[in-house]
């Protein structure tokens, strides 16, 4: 099944983590999809930047808080995680508002390094244009 094919695959997250199920079910695709060993990128833009907000608390809305699952992205061999700088700024946020997500760099004796990279809209557009497959949630 799909052996030997390696595609550039971008997951685009543009919706807030709660209010609709798209963010949660989108993350499930990323985590399941990791087993397929494609050239994966994950981008957060528009209201999707709220998915990475630190200190999420869903107690008052009675919905499961799944935000800790994003911290596992590194363990699932995802190495390219982008947050669009303009989307953060438009919402009065900056990188200090986001949770710390790290990965263990196998090329540097397993050192913990930040996984998320802030990029601007122009750069994200370029990344999108390079993809074989884009899944948007």
């Amino acid at each position: 099944m799909a052996e030997g094919i390696k595609k550039k695959l971008l997951y685009v997250n543009r919706k807030a983590p709660y209010g609709t199920i798209y963010a949660l079910e989108g993350l499930e695709v990323v985590l399941v999809g990791a087993a397929f060993e494609q050239d994966v990128s994950v981008a957060f833009l528009d209201d999707g930047v709220f998915q990475l907000l630190d200190g999420q608390d869903t107690a008052d809305i009675g919905v499961k808080n799944f935000s800790r699952a994003y911290k596992a992205l590194g363990d699932f061999e995802v190495r390219k995680v982008y947050v669009e700088r303009e989307s953060l700024a438009e919402r009065g946020l900056d990188s200090a508002d986001l949770m710390q997500i790290t990965y263990e760099d196998e090329n540097d004796d397993g050192a913990e390094k930040p996984l998320v990279r802030l990029i601007d809209r122009r750069e994200l557009a370029h990344i999108m244009s390079e993809q074989d497959v884009i899944l948007s949630f």
């Binding site: 099944m1 799909a2 595609k7 695959l9 999809g33 087993a35 397929f36």
Partner: peptide, 18 residues
């Protein structure tokens, strides 16, 4: 079936249309 079926479609098809 599972999400693997979506991944397979994304990888094996020439275009995945959402």
């Amino acid at each position: 079936s599972g999400l693997g079926q979506l991944m397979e479609a994304a990888i094996e098809a020439d275009r995945l249309v959402t």
